[in-house]
């Protein structure tokens, strides 16, 4: 899956220059004049890996406002801010809200490219983690209710005998369930299953 660099700057000249610079190092770039135009692509922004290069001072909604709105909407695209007149409070606010970088125009091209690179790496990593978690969740969802109970107790470190007593099952039955859990979750060892249970519970949906 390719990643896209979204640019929002109201100045056409700056937009074109940024596009050219980013394309010259092989990025896929989409540029917009204002945040409203960008938000029409909200769906793709959620789906595609990428990052946002955002002018702070824009007509209509400002860059900082957009940053807040995207965060509220759960769109976690990393943001690189650029500004014609960077003042300290503004950059502090942007960085606190999770911006990757805050660059003052005119900036060194390497600074921008480095920031974009970091942003894309972050987003790719984040998306890979999200995909893996989704796959794990799908495997967990394929377990029966009894198997989930057994998995939770196994992950909690209980022995088959204890689980049998707890669930009022024969120890043999527990062993069958346990083998089934290991197979469905594609866990090669007990520690791996424990880690899977941890990640699922950290995500708030598992055990």
């Amino acid at each position: 899956m390719t990643s896209v660099v979204f640019i929002v700057d109201d100045d056409q000249a700056v937009r074109e220059a940024l596009q050219s610079l980013l394309r010259s190092v092989g990025h896929v770039v989409e540029a917009f004049e204002c945040t409203r135009d960008l938000l029409e692509h909200r769906q793709r922004m959620a789906e595609l890996a990428g990052c946002l290069v955002l002018d702070v001072r824009l007509p209509g909604q400002s860059g900082l406002d957009l940053q807040r709105q995207l965060a509220a909407d759960g769109i976690l695209l990393p943001i690189v801010f650029i500004t014609g007149h960077g003042d300290v409070p503004m950059s502090v606010a942007a960085m606190k809200a999770g911006a990757i970088e805050f660059l003052t125009k005119p900036f060194r091209d390497q600074d921008l490219l480095d920031a974009v690179h970091r942003a894309l790496e972050l987003d790719t990593g984040r998306r890979a983690a999200a995909t893996a978690l989704a796959a794990l969740q799908a495997r967990f969802d394929s377990l029966t209710a009894r198997e989930r109970e057994v998995m939770a107790l196994v992950a909690a470190g209980q022995l088959n005998k204890q689980i049998a007593a707890e669930l009022e099952l024969a120890e043999v039955t527990v062993k069958v369930h346990r083998a089934q859990v290991m197979a469905k979750m594609q866990a090669r060892s007990l520690p791996e299953l424990v880690r899977m249970a941890d990640r699922l519970s950290a995500d708030g949906r598992g055990g």
Partner: peptide
Amino acid sequence: NQPLASMVTNADAG
């Protein structure tokens, strides 16, 4: 500053 910034960026891109 705006045209200046885009000139610098264009030169870098070129």
